[in-house]
Simulated assay, not measured.
Amino acid sequence: MFGAVRKAWRSLVGTVGVPENGGRDGHAHNLFEAAAAYVTAYAEDDQERLDEAAGWVSPEALSFGVNELACRAVVALAREHRRPPQDVARALLGLPAAS
């Protein structure tokens, strides 16, 4: 099963495009750099940086990267607070605890 996931991951990463001119500093950005910059800009309400990060990779790749960032953040917070990931995710979204 994990072999299939790794194969799909390699396929996705291999097909994720970056604009030919790369990022603003001339190097190509990967989907995780784009996701981190996008989420940070969104949290800081910086529309210019948000638009820039959104242009680094395809919308599909950005969506995947943001989702991966969210998952990793929930897991890290759950470990830090010794709580189940579901409780942390619900708390971050302002939802009541699951019964």
Score class of each variant (00 low, 15 high):
residue 1 M to G: 08
residue 1 M to A: 11
residue 2 F to A: 11
residue 3 G to K: 12
residue 4 A to L: 13
residue 4 A to V: 08
residue 5 V to S: 11
residue 6 R to F: 14
residue 6 R to W: 13
residue 7 K to N: 14
residue 7 K to H: 14
residue 8 A to K: 14
residue 9 W to N: 10
residue 11 S to H: 14
residue 12 L to P: 01
residue 13 V to I: 14
residue 13 V to R: 12
residue 14 G to Q: 10
residue 14 G to E: 14
residue 15 T to C: 13
residue 15 T to A: 15
residue 15 T to Y: 10
residue 15 T to P: 00
residue 16 V to K: 00
residue 19 P to M: 11
residue 19 P to G: 12
residue 20 E to V: 15
residue 20 E to A: 15
residue 21 N to R: 15
residue 24 R to C: 09
residue 26 G to A: 04
residue 26 G to P: 02
residue 27 H to D: 07
residue 27 H to Y: 11
residue 28 A to C: 07
residue 28 A to T: 08
residue 28 A to G: 08
residue 30 N to F: 08
residue 30 N to A: 11
residue 30 N to K: 08
residue 31 L to Q: 09
residue 31 L to A: 09
residue 32 F to E: 05
residue 33 E to V: 03
residue 33 E to K: 08
residue 34 A to C: 03
residue 34 A to R: 00
residue 34 A to Q: 06
residue 36 A to W: 03
residue 37 A to Q: 01
residue 37 A to P: 00
residue 39 V to D: 04
residue 40 T to R: 10
residue 40 T to H: 00
residue 40 T to N: 10
residue 41 A to T: 07
residue 41 A to C: 03
residue 43 A to E: 10
residue 43 A to K: 02
residue 45 D to G: 00
residue 45 D to N: 09
residue 46 D to N: 08
residue 47 Q to R: 11
residue 47 Q to M: 11
residue 48 E to L: 12
residue 48 E to W: 06
residue 48 E to F: 09
residue 48 E to N: 10
residue 49 R to T: 02
residue 51 D to Q: 12
residue 51 D to N: 13
residue 51 D to T: 09
residue 52 E to H: 05
residue 52 E to G: 01
residue 53 A to E: 02
residue 53 A to S: 06
residue 54 A to T: 01
residue 54 A to I: 06
residue 55 G to W: 01
residue 55 G to A: 07
residue 56 W to C: 03
residue 56 W to H: 04
residue 57 V to F: 04
residue 57 V to E: 02
residue 57 V to Y: 00
residue 57 V to R: 00
residue 58 S to F: 01
residue 59 P to N: 07
residue 59 P to F: 03
residue 59 P to C: 02
residue 60 E to R: 08
residue 60 E to F: 08
residue 60 E to I: 06
residue 61 A to G: 09
residue 64 F to K: 09
residue 64 F to N: 07
residue 64 F to D: 12
residue 65 G to Y: 06
residue 68 E to T: 07
residue 69 L to H: 13
residue 71 C to I: 02
residue 71 C to F: 06
residue 71 C to E: 13
residue 71 C to K: 00
residue 72 R to W: 12
residue 72 R to E: 05
residue 73 A to H: 08
residue 73 A to L: 09
residue 73 A to T: 11
residue 74 V to H: 04
residue 74 V to E: 04
residue 74 V to N: 02
residue 75 V to I: 13
residue 77 L to G: 02
residue 77 L to W: 02
residue 77 L to N: 04
residue 78 A to G: 05
residue 79 R to M: 04
residue 79 R to F: 00
residue 81 H to M: 13
residue 83 R to L: 10
residue 84 P to E: 15
residue 85 P to I: 08
residue 85 P to Y: 11
residue 85 P to A: 11
residue 86 Q to R: 13
residue 87 D to T: 10
residue 87 D to Y: 03
residue 87 D to P: 01
residue 87 D to Q: 12
residue 88 V to S: 06
residue 88 V to D: 03
residue 88 V to L: 06
residue 89 A to W: 03
residue 89 A to I: 05
residue 90 R to L: 12
residue 90 R to S: 05
residue 91 A to D: 09
residue 92 L to M: 15
residue 92 L to G: 14
residue 92 L to C: 13
residue 93 L to G: 06
residue 93 L to P: 01
residue 94 G to C: 04
residue 94 G to R: 02
residue 94 G to F: 05
residue 95 L to C: 06
residue 97 A to Q: 06
residue 97 A to N: 05
residue 98 A to H: 07
residue 98 A to E: 07
residue 99 S to H: 01
